[in-house]
């Protein structure tokens, strides 16, 4: 198996800086090993946390800037996303199946976030125009 999701236009929320960060998150999730490799898995997870935080902070700043009305709700969702990621990232990764399941989770975690939550920011900006 070689799970990967490449960013494409359908994922765009129309804000280049945030789109670039979403691409980077996909790249990190794509590099999660599908075989048992604790060291590599740890590196990916750590990077995922770092860039997710940077991304969420940038996104929250942007939402503030454009006067997005559901800012508080979106911040709560970001915190919940970090929690979900931690729960799953703490499970044992001592089999290939476990690694693959973790990778699927991480990819869906990003896609859901962009397609469901972030697209709403894009709609708000479009309406303002």
């Amino acid at each position: 198996m070689n799970l990967r999701i490449d960013w494409n236009e359908t994922y765009s929320i129309g804000i280049p800086e945030l789109d670039a960060q979403h691409q980077l998150l996909f790249n990190i999730a794509n590099s999660i090993p599908e075989t048992v490799d604790e060291k590599k898995a740890r590196t990916c997870i750590v990077r995922l946390f770092k860039y997710a935080r940077e991304h969420f902070t940038a996104e929250e700043d942007e939402m503030r800037r454009v006067g997005y009305p559901k800012l508080d709700e979106h911040i709560r969702i970001h915190d919940a996303l970090i929690s979900n990621l931690s729960d799953v990232a703490m499970a044992p990764l001592d089999t290939e199946e476990a690694n693959i399941a973790f990778k699927k989770f991480a990819l869906h975690w990003i896609v859901d976030h962009i397609m469901i939550r972030d697209k709403d920011i894009a709609r708000h900006i479009a309406q303002q125009r």
Binding site: E38, K39, R42, F49, D79, I82, S86, L93
Partner: peptide, 21 residues
């Protein structure tokens, strides 16, 4: 102890995020 160190690091990142926020 790779598995334990990973778990600990994940918790550290999670709580650091919550704490800084």
């Amino acid at each position: 102890n790779e598995q334990r160190v990973r778990t600990t690091i994940v918790r550290l990142f999670k709580y650091t995020h919550e704490h800084f926020a």
